[in-house]
């Protein structure tokens, strides 16, 4: 992929170039990612599959700026982001990237509504918050309402079921209107039915809002609902099918 091509067509939403990541534990070095090239075009919905321990979560963390690659590059919307200063990465996480985790990762001290508002609470200072509060709360309520949680606004996470918690987590990821949503086995802790509901909600977001999504999963059924499937094996991208693969060439 040459630099000349980039201005000529719309850049991919999310791209990794030769991303390597290795873990050192004692004397043994574990090379988890060895040059991963991954591309998600705008409005794409890719499922990442692979054996347990193949490095799916690691790749997602690198793309979500939670972890830095040992080498390689991460680009978002035509902009290289892995070498940005720490503050800038924090800001991107807060505004451009939404993340959903297998273990929900809600803050136990906050209510469902406050959890959804958390990214905005983090973004705004006290003064700004008081000017933005009303709009933010309306937006959070609308999101929770869309996920069928309008009667759970003031519940604490531990008062919610797994599916409800995951829906709150998705609402939290969406409140910042991110450019891309990264979901790491969002259905892993859920029963089949609630899991299907979550996947349906994600597919709907992709379809209706054109939200770009990367979904890590074990489940072949779930993966098949995505626009394309990427298989991670031996630290590299093994198979890429569907439309996403075209632009990755």
């Amino acid at each position: 992929m040459s630099d000349l091509e980039i201005p000529s067509k719309t850049p991919p939403m999310l791209e990794t170039r030769q991303v390597c990541k290795q873990y050192q534990s004692g004397t043994t070095t574990l090379e988890v990612l060895r040059g991963v090239d991954f591309t998600l075009k705008e409005g794409g919905f890719l499922a990442v599959v692979g054996q347990s321990g193949s490095g799916k979560s690691t790749l997602l963390h690198v793309m979500g700026l939670l972890d830095a690659p040992d080498s390689g590059e991460v680009w978002i919307n035509g902009r290289r982001i892995d070498n940005l200063p720490v503050r800038e990465k924090d800001r991107l996480r807060n505004s451009s990237i939404g993340m959903v985790f297998q273990a929900y990762h809600l803050l136990p001290e906050l209510t469902a509504l406050e959890n959804v508002l958390a990214p905005l609470l983090i973004r705004y200072g006290i003064f700004d918050w008081f000017t933005q509060r009303r709009a933010a709360q309306e937006k959070a309520k609308a999101l929770l309402d869309r996920f069928g949680l309008s009667d759970r606004l003031h519940h604490r996470p531990r008062q919610l079921s797994g599916g409800e918690m995951q829906r709150v987590a998705i609402a939290r990821a969406l409140i910042t209107d991110p450019q891309v949503l990264l979901a790491d086995e969002p259905t892993g802790n859920l029963d089949e039915e609630s899991g299907a509901g979550i996947i349906e909600a994600l597919a709907e977001l992709n379809r209706d809002k054109g939200l770009s999504i990367v979904l890590v999963t074990h489940d072949a059924d779930i993966a098949s609902q995505a626009g394309g499937i990427v298989r991670l094996a031996a630290g590299t991208v093994d198979i890429m099918n569907s439309g996403a693969a075209d632009s990755a060439a």
Partner: peptide, 16 residues
């Protein structure tokens, strides 16, 4: 610790 990780994932700075 986990909550601190969550806050960082949501974009909280280290100084924050």
């Amino acid at each position: 610790t986990r909550d601190i990780g969550i806050l960082k994932a949501l974009g909280a700075t280290s100084s924050g």
